[in-house]
């Protein structure tokens, strides 16, 4: 039977998922009906099933582990996390830093106003207020400095970069789906 190009578009790229039992409902019915009358896709489906069967029959790479192995690994992980920072709280995150930075800037602005206009300060604030403002600014500056200090994590120790290699992979994405369709239309 001749391959029906139009009908194959949108079906042929689903054959592997169908062979793997991952399609349901309308999508699965569409593939099932198509392979009934398309010999080419039926052959591709059969080939995909063969490859998948072979993949599933591959032996486990790491081999079996005993209970002691898992217990030891869990204990090591728990012990390591005990040495590192607890889950980040809001005041440790970027938002918190912005908030603290904002507070610091506000306090610095008030201090600049106080220093620049001493006569007005005499009218507006008692000497004790100057003292507490200064302490506040100093405290915030110290806090911001400590927040800004890079915290060494286990990743730094292990030399593992915090990047996301998957983001850098130029493989297939949503845009490529167009190209997949184009493969078939080009052949028409």
């Amino acid at each position: 039977m001749l391959k029906t190009i139009d009908g194959c578009i949108g079906v042929s790229e689903l054959l592997e998922a169908y062979a793997d039992g991952a399609l349901h409902g309308q999508e699965a019915r569409r593939v099932a009906e198509h392979v009934q009358h398309c010999a080419s896709c039926a052959a591709d489906l059969h080939a995909a099933e063969t490859v998948l069967r072979a993949l599933r029959s591959l032996p486990g790479q790491a081999g079996p582990r005993d209970k002691a192995f898992w217990n030891s690994m869990a204990a090591e992980i728990t012990a390591t996390t005990a040495k590192v920072t607890a889950p980040r709280r809001w005041y440790r995150g970027a938002m918190g830093r912005s908030f603290l930075a904002g507070g610091g800037l506000a306090a610095a602005a008030v201090l600049a106003f106080v220093l620049a206009m001493p006569q007005q300060v005499e009218r507006l604030a008692a000497p004790s207020v100057d003292g507490s403002l200064s302490e506040t600014v100093t405290g915030l500056a110290d806090e911001l400095q400590s927040e800004g200090t890079p915290h060494r994590t286990l990743f730094d120790e292990l030399g593992i970069p915090d990047s996301d290699p998957l983001d850098m992979i130029d493989d297939l994405d949503d845009n490529d789906l167009q190209a997949v369709g184009a493969e078939f239309t080009d052949g028409v």
Partner: peptide
Amino acid sequence: DAAKANFH
């Protein structure tokens, strides 16, 4: 859909 296309 992209995952399925990659699988394909």
